[in-house]
Amino acid sequence: MLNVGKIEEGFVLDHIQAGKSMSIYEHLGLDKMDCTVAIIKNARSKIMGKKDILKVECDIDTLDLNVLAFIDHNITINVIKAGEIIEKRSLKLPKEVRNVIKCRNPRCITSIEQELPHIFFLADEEKEIYRCKYCEEKYSQKDKF
């Protein structure tokens, strides 16, 4: 098994659905940061079978946790200080997300007015359904990414 060393300061995103880590890497803007990032794909997991893990050496507050929660609210966040886990954070589906996904409805006003932000609001928390703020087009978990 491949070993990736501990990090001293930063956070670990655990229980990422296998195959989703690169999408998260991009949506969190980690590609634009110069901190150390380890992307572990298809790690063995008792609960999930396979999972992805991201280890990031930067301050957790630089992250937009809403984006992360929208992508997958089952991800757990371990905050690391001095090499130890000092906090575990769970995620809740955000009430609203901006410019994370685009409305796919060709009849939506956002399809012709490019400068408009793509805003989705949480319409049904139980079914994890979001709707476009303009045209109310539905986006469910399976449509994401």
Binding site: N105, R107, C108, I109, T110, S111, I112, E113, L116, C132, K133, Y134, C135, E136, E137
Partner: peptide, 9 residues
């Protein structure tokens, strides 16, 4: 407007 959400904008 023919586009959905135009009035909201």
């Amino acid at each position: 407007h023919p586009k959905e959400g135009a009035a909201f904008v």
